[in-house]
Amino acid sequence: MPRTLAPGQRSRIHVLDVETGEDQILHESEAVLYEAPNWTLDGAALILNGDGHLFRLDLDDGGALDDGGDLDLPGRAGGAPQRIPLDGMAPLNNDHVLDPDGEHVFVSADDSHIHRALLTGGPAEQITLEDGLLHYLHGVSPDGATLAYTGVQRRSDGSWVPPNLFTIRAEGGESTQLTKDEFPDDGPEYSPDGAWIYFNSERSRTVAGHAQLFRMRPDGTGREQLTDDERVNWFPHLSPDGARLAYVSFPPGTEGHPADREVILRLGAADGTGIRDLTAVFGGQGTMNVNSWAPDSRRLAYVDYPLQS
């Protein structure tokens, strides 16, 4: 079931300049819980999910947007997030990634599959097979040929196998498993040059839930640990120029990537060095699950979920 806002809660769509620290609220809603913004390749819009649907939020010269009637924001462009109609789709979750062709989007849905559709809407094509996995999309290779996803499988006794990472050709077919061990892995995303898949994992944990950031070659070899600190780090995203790494950092002791937590958005170099805090937000799940970098490699889009004070 799609997530909803708690009484008195809002979802706010932001754009953050990582160089100046300027943080602008583009849209605020008390009705729809928006999640996981992608930036279109031309920089003209953000693609988000909410209420099980996909939405497009058009930008005004890359700046402020209309408030949807909730606030009197300056520089508004006269529009609110507009639903992208996808024919016959199960409700969507917040795992969606834009096709490098600039015309399509890959989405994960509550039917446990990955689909491909036009950004303008219409029928969607199922990519993944009926292979017993729950498929959660996170990455697409720079040439658009291969998808990286998190796969979860139930054992015969009803328990769940720890999440593992897989790739699949964008046109469908059999998947290739990249990780297979007792440590939960998640958030696989290609670097812009296609040389690495970045991900978060508990493989270095000392306590349950203690995820850190890693990268590996697209065939699953050459794994490297990038962060090693007391916080719980999720969803690594490389900037389009390949120079910057942004991610969501949860408080110590967090298990998984829950909603409604005080989290920190952090930034560092692609190799995990030079990590610094960008901003603290009330969010977590939905804040920045997918790559939210602008084409200029300077701005990040994210969502927070403040509660009524």
Rank of each mutant, 00 (worst) to 15 (best):
D193I: 06
D193Y: 11
A195Y: 11
A195W: 09
A195V: 10
A195F: 12
I197F: 05
I197K: 02
Y198I: 02
F199T: 05
S201H: 05
R203G: 03
R205P: 01
R205F: 10
V207G: 05
V207M: 10
A208P: 11
G209L: 07
G209C: 08
H210V: 08
A211D: 06
Q212G: 10
Q212V: 07
L213E: 03
M216T: 07
R217T: 11
R217L: 11
R217Q: 13
T221V: 05
T221G: 11
T221E: 12
L226A: 11
D228S: 12
V232S: 10
N233P: 08
F235N: 11
P236T: 07
P236M: 10
H237M: 11
L238C: 10
L238S: 08
P240N: 05
P240G: 04
D241S: 05
G242D: 06
L245D: 01
A246F: 00
A246C: 04
S249H: 03
S249L: 04
S249T: 02
F250P: 00
P251T: 01
P252A: 10
G253L: 06
T254A: 02
E255F: 04
E255Q: 11
E255D: 04
G256C: 10
G256Y: 07
H257I: 07
R261Q: 15
E262K: 14
I264K: 12
R266N: 10
A269L: 13
A270E: 06
G272V: 03
G272Y: 00
G274K: 07
G274A: 10
R276H: 07
D277A: 05
D277L: 01
T279Y: 04
T279D: 02
T279Q: 07
A280H: 12
A280S: 13
F282S: 09
G284M: 06
Q285Y: 15
T287S: 15
M288Q: 02
N291A: 05
W293D: 04
A294T: 01
